[in-house]
């Protein structure tokens, strides 16, 4: 299986078979894992903050608004149909306590969830929050597989 690493602030969308998408060490960022079984498309988008003043073409998805727009544009261009899209949300590590301004994961999560639901797209499952870091692997055949440092067992959504 060919591995493709999805860096933070970017997204990958593919209709190539036998691909494993991996988003490592998510921190408070949010991995939006997407699949459309009818068109054979999978993708992961990893936004980092809700917004920035001037988006960078190499980090299209660093800010949530721009990232989601570009991600779904590519998904639809590859032939996905809104009603067939399924989404899993993974990530958003949070500190025990702190100012709301630094709970950036929660800000991302709220923004992404509202946007997706407003567009009538189904969120299948989530693995978000908690005071730990995650890595997620995602292929066409399985739900996202999550690993956490210090934990022996993987979580399969």
């Amino acid at each position: 299986m060919r591995e493709i690493f999805v860096e933070k602030g970017t997204f990958v969308v593919t209709d190539e078979g036998g691909v494993l998408l991996i988003a490592k060490s998510l921190g408070s960022t949010l991995a939006i894992c997407l699949r459309d079984t009818s068109s054979g498309i999978i993708g992961i988008c990893v936004p980092v903050v809700p917004k920035v003043s001037t988006p960078d073409p190499l980090l299209t998805a660093f800010d949530c608004a721009n990232g989601l727009r570009e991600f779904f544009k590519e998904v639809m261009e590859k032939g996905a149909k809104r009603q067939n899209i399924k989404i899993w949300l993974v990530g958003v590590g949070i500190f025990f306590e702190g100012p709301r301004e630094l709970n950036i994961g929660a800000q991302l999560y709220t923004y992404v969830k509202n946007t997706i639901e407003r567009n009538g797209i189904k969120i299948v499952k989530e693995h978000v929050g908690g005071s730990y870091n995650r890595t997620v692997r995602f292929s066409f055949t399985d739900g996202p597989v999550i690993t956490i440092p210090g934990e022996d067992e993987e979580v399969v959504l």
Binding site: S28, V48, F95, F96, G98, L102, G105, S131, N133, P149
Partner: peptide, 30 residues
């Protein structure tokens, strides 16, 4: 928060709620 070099200690820390006010830095600055 950006997940760079984060180990098993992860997010298991308390943050002072006044930290940003003390530095006079805003959410958008962050």
């Amino acid at each position: 928060i950006m997940g760079i070099g984060v180990g098993a200690d992860g997010f298991r820390y308390w943050i002072n709620p006044e930290l940003l006010d003390a530095l006079k830095i805003t959410r958008n600055d962050i």
